[in-house]
């Protein structure tokens, strides 16, 4: 039973890593949002398995919270935003996807090396997943840097938060409940604020292209 659970968590972890790469290369906004909710669902599945395996009751609660927030509510808000901003069919021109992927692989190797000494010390039943979580954080980070549109940047930010949540689950069986609630609240409020922001940016600049936001620089 435990053996199966460990393998399941590892499977979900590798799934997360694949999703992170898929998001890095995805050009269409709508697909990006769907990938984000799929990522949320994977995190929920991993959390439930860990909760079942370790009998940590509060992990079930955080799994439910994540399900509501990151699989339904936030993607729904994002879909509405896309609709109202009328950017449904936006396609971003990403230069050089293959080399982006190669840099991504280097990042994954780096993350694994960084996490290796800690994974060995971890009392957790699934030590290898910390490296994957860190790799996902770095890949989302890279996605935020590479993108020139506002909405994909936001999704990159949210994906990073998902990866951090997975790190907390796999390395420490989740943070205390009060902290997790606080983080969830911050993320939700953050998404609302960003939504308002996107409208204001479009009103002022008549585009959601972040490359317009370059007047403030040192001369």
């Amino acid at each position: 039973m435990t053996e199966l659970s460990i393998q399941l968590v590892n499977l979900f972890a590798s799934f997360l890593l694949m999703l992170a790469f898929a998001m890095l290369a995805q050009r269409r906004v709508l697909t990006l949002i769907n990938l984000y909710s799929l990522q949320g669902l994977t995190v929920v599945a991993a959390t439930t398995v860990v909760a079942h395996m370790t009998h940590q009751e509060h992990l079930y609660y955080s799994a439910v919270l994540t399900l509501i927030l990151k699989v339904f509510l936030i993607p729904w808000i994002l879909h509405r935003l896309v609709k109202r901003l009328n950017v449904r069919w936006d396609v971003e021109t990403l230069i050089n996807i293959p080399s982006t992927m190669l840099v991504g692989i280097v990042l994954v190797v780096f993350a694994f090396n960084l996490a290796l000494p800690i994974s060995r010390l971890s009392s957790s039943v699934v030590p290898g997943t910390l490296g994957i979580a860190l790799a996902c954080v770095l890949l989302s980070f890279m996605m935020m840097i590479m993108r020139t549109k506002a909405l994909p940047q936001v999704i990159g930010f949210l994906a990073m938060e998902n990866a951090l949540f997975f790190a907390a689950t796999s390395a420490t069986y989740g943070m205390p409940m009060v902290v997790e609630l606080g983080i969830a609240l911050d993320v939700l409020v953050g998404v609302f604020i960003l939504g308002v922001f996107l409208f204001q940016i479009r009103e002022q600049f008549e585009s959601l292209d972040i490359s317009h936001l370059e007047s403030l620089r040192e001369d």
Partner: peptide, 24 residues
């Protein structure tokens, strides 16, 4: 708006690193 966007994204990324540190 540009200043606020920059502030949000940079500090958001920064504070995400702090969360990873807190998890560790």
């Amino acid at each position: 708006l540009e200043a606020a966007w920059k502030y949000f994204i940079l500090c958001g990324v920064g504070i995400a690193q702090a969360l990873f540190g807190t998890i560790l």
